[in-house]
């Protein structure tokens, strides 16, 4: 049992890492990765929602009638998103302001609904937690990598600390909207290159 749990956990980290391999849930990936801080914050919020909704969906999988399952999943997910929203408003207000509407929009993040439908509805709770945790951490790592590239090149800082000397000319293109697309495209290309071996 422990072995299969580890398998479900690790597949989210590389083999099926959400934004790159599955090309799902790209909106927050592109929008909040201007700085590493935002990227990690968004990743943690999404991970929390993923794990909790996966757990609840999996526990209720024999109770929910199949015909209205999507609506049930959405209500479960929306509940946890509201919890995250309120908690962040109370304890991490500056970050909440920066992430803006992308916090409520976790509801419609395809990854969360996708995992509920594709995995949690068919597997027991402990497997669903492993899956949610793996996917969430994979998502957080991808956000961190992308935001690190963008922050280092775009503003010359990492987590707000300057990386280069004072003569560094920031490559502002990277923190603007077009840079997000190009940067993600190139990262995806790099992953394809590495993954082929």
């Amino acid at each position: 049992m422990a072995q299969s749990m580890v398998k479900e956990f690790t597949k989210g980290l590389w083999a099926e890492v959400p934004p790159f391999r599955l090309v799902l849930g790209l909106c927050p990936v592109l929008a909040v990765t201007k700085t590493v801080e935002n990227g990690i914050g968004m990743g943690i919020a999404t991970t929390f929602v993923l794990v909790c909704s996966n757990l609840l969906v999996s526990m209720l999988r024999n109770v929910i009638p199949p015909k209205v399952r999507i609506a049930c999943y959405i209500v479960i997910i929306a509940t946890f998103v509201t919890i995250v929203e309120l908690v962040m408003q109370a304890f991490a207000y500056p970050l909440f302001l920066k992430l803006g509407i992308f916090i409520p929009l976790i509801v419609v993040n395809c990854i969360v609904l996708g995992r509920s439908e594709a995995f949690a509805s068919k597997n027991p709770p402990h497997m669903a937690i492993a899956d949610g945790l793996g996917m969430g951490i994979g998502f957080t790592l991808s956000l961190t990598v992308l935001s690190a590239v963008r922050e280092i090149l775009g503003t010359g800082t990492l987590l707000g600390n300057p990386v280069f000397g004072p003569n560094f000319q920031p490559f502002t293109f990277m923190v603007e909207a077009p840079g997000a697309f190009v940067c993600l495209g190139l990262l995806l290309c790099m992953m394809n290159l590495i993954g082929k071996k």
Binding site: G185, L186, L188, C189, M190, N192, L193
Partner: peptide, 15 residues
């Protein structure tokens, strides 16, 4: 090859 499909799509979207 590694740029095909989504990857080149994203770069195009950037343009």
């Amino acid at each position: 090859k590694p740029l095909q499909d989504t990857s080149i799509g994203l770069v195009t979207a950037g343009m």
